[in-house]
């Protein structure tokens, strides 16, 4: 199961090097500081998505499907995940993410959309066979400058569930001794 040690960060923001990417990297490093982290920015694959021929995207999809821990990050567009994220996810067949432990990350402009991770991203990941043992990491844009408090709150609520589901994650005792 060596490949299940890998950590993949999947970012559905159409802009490269977005604050969504920065937040997702921070979360992944926080969850698995010793992990081998691969960052996939879909903005860089956008030219291939929604076209008939997408060899590069297919390769990336295989990397994502083999992740141990997958952080799926999206800004909120029209009260849901981005079309770009969905266009990539549409490349997966049924149960393609079986064996993957996924954590949704959602960045919204207002607190009104903080539940998008639960109402839209979670069912999508579950339908693809991923295990989603924790709540989503949901932050507003105003929280992005300092994610510390949000990470601490998430740890308190969900770190034990993540550590139980994925051995690569540090336990709550290790992060907050």
């Amino acid at each position: 199961m060596a490949e299940r040690e890998s950590v993949v960060v999947l970012v559905g923001n159409p802009r490269p090097r977005s604050r969504t990417t920065a937040a997702a990297e921070t979360l992944a490093e926080h969850l698995a500081p010793d992990g081998d982290i691969t960052v996939v920015e879909l903005s860089r694959l956008a030219g291939e998505l929604l076209t008939a021929d997408h060899p590069h995207a297919d390769r990336v999809a295989r990397t994502v499907a083999q992740a141990g821990l997958l952080v799926v990050a999206t800004p909120v567009y029209k009260a849901s995940y981005t079309g770009l994220l969905k266009a990539f996810v549409d490349l997966f067949g049924p149960a393609a993410l079986r064996g993957v432990v996924a954590v949704p990350l959602v960045v919204s402009a207002s607190p009104a959309h903080q539940h998008v991770g639960e109402t839209h991203v979670r069912p999508l990941l579950v339908e693809l066979g991923a295990s989603v043992p924790t709540g989503a990491f949901a932050v507003t844009e105003s929280q992005l400058a300092d994610l510390g408090p949000a990470l601490a709150a998430w740890d308190e609520a969900w770190r034990p569930a993540l550590a139980a589901a994925w051995p690569g994650a540090r336990t709550l005792a290790e992060v907050a001794p």
Binding site: S80, T82, A87, D90
Partner: peptide
């Protein structure tokens, strides 16, 4: 697809 609109529609 996967229980929701496809990526083309949402885009």
């Amino acid at each position: 697809f996967s229980g929701s609109y496809n990526g083309l529609f949402k885009t």
